[in-house]
Design a protein around this nucleic acid. Structure first.
Lengths: 233, 233
DNA sequence: CGGTTGTTTGAACTGATTCAATCTGTGTGG
DNA sequence: CCACACAGATTGAATCAGTTCAAACAACCG
């Protein structure tokens, strides 16, 4: 049960920033937990295992993924620092993997329960977290269902910039994804994602320096992506 | 505030069936509410309106939908009888419409709050409801992102049969959707949905009598759809 | 019966996939 | 510091799944 004051403070601050009052935030951040370093490329949690853990991402980036009948992968959710994966009854119907090397706080659902009883605000807090994820999910569904490939990629970039809390115009977005991962999120092939990136750059909407992406024309980018940030709260 | 004993008993029973204990179920079903008849084709709730209502579908079928930049519609969720739409902070980022004529119980979030305080089990109950919807959402994301058009339609039919609680082999599934609506769910065009239906029938996987669909080869249908019912609980 | 909504079909087209090859950057060991 | 390996990015050509447009057909309903 490794725990450092530093990491707990990070989580506490994150919870506060997410709108949880101080007392329940302290209780939640103080829960007995491990801090795990997760490497990309190897599965962290497999599909079909029990969902008896609370997780909060301290740093890095996790994804939830599923696989269709023919083995093609679809990433169904992302978890940025401060976001969590809550426990539930039954088994996990998704796998969890890191996109970049990540640090994750992992506690047990059993330890969480008494704290939720003692601090009823936590239930409402979790509820709002889940609602936000649902809104993101809906937006992803619109992307994969109705937007063309350019709009999908642009939308993901804009969403990532907001969720990663970066300033993509001046600093550029430190794009954490490989083109294959973007394909797995947006429901395309990596080949096409590559062509979309080239298009976006040719049109002057973005500029690339290695993985880093600068948003050269934010307004136009948001227009082609039909991106409206309100769903991120 | 129209309310009949009959309808309240329906909701009560539904809540019980969904796993809520008797006392909180009675309290929840007894909340002050209207029973609204919703007609298809005209919007019931518009996007951008406050999410200050609890709704439970008594009969019929509702959908949540969004629209992409070019006005193309994507249905992002369905609500079968016994399923609900919970309140949240902020504005609705989706519209609500009926697929078939529906009866909906509508209460106010303000009335819900004291009842949730008095019956803490309700929070957990709601949480599990939302988790189930999230699992369905993930499955839809895999469909629109990775499955081919045949698998998408087949998957929707199988999911609908389970959620509508019908026996699609002997009785047939009373398919509530127009082909345009199936297209709006699966991210296709109605023309292609039509061709997929014809294909499925030609392959002997389904048989159609008007809107009604009989599943002639359940095992094969589940295989082509990569459908595993566990995510529906 | 006429109007409306939904289904079916055909033909042309196109966005995205597939397959395959090449290129680039980064890290590793000698 | 170079040679090599490896992962990821890029490009081209052929193919195909699904769209688009347009028209015909069927079912339903007042």
């Amino acid at each position: 049960m490794a725990r450092t004051a530093n990491q707990s403070i990070d989580l506490y601050q994150t919870l506060i920033d997410s709108g949880l009052p101080a007392r329940p935030a302290r209780a939640l951040a103080g829960i007995d937990h491990r801090v795990v370093d997760v490497e990309p490329k190897r599965p962290f949690r497999e599909m079909g295992t029990p969902r008896d853990e609370v997780m909060f991402v301290v740093s890095g980036l996790l994804c939830k993924y599923k696989t269709d009948g023919t083995g093609r992968r679809q990433i169904v959710g992302l978890r940025f620092p401060g976001e969590g994966i809550l426990p539930s009854k039954g088994l996990r119907d998704f796998g969890i993997q890191a996109i970049v090397p990540s640090r994750v706080m992992v506690g047990s659902a059993a330890d969480l329960e008494p704290i939720m009883k003692a601090h009823p605000e936590i239930a409402g807090f979790f509820f709002e977290l889940v609602q936000r994820e649902t809104r993101i999910n809906y937006e992803w569904l619109v992307s994969t269902g109705r937007r063309d490939s350019t709009a999908r990629v642009a939308h993901l970039l804009l969403e990532t910039a907001v969720r990663a809390n970066s300033d993509p115009v001046t600093d550029g977005l430190a794009n954490p994804f490989t083109q294959q991962q973007i394909a797995d999120i947006t429901g395309q092939t990596s080949v096409n994602v590559n062509r979309v990136f080239a298009d976006l750059e040719r049109q002057g909407l973005i500029r690339r320096e290695g993985r880093r992406v600068f948003f050269e024309d934010m307004a136009e980018l948001e227009r082609v992506a039909s991106f409206h940030s309100e769903y991120l709260q």
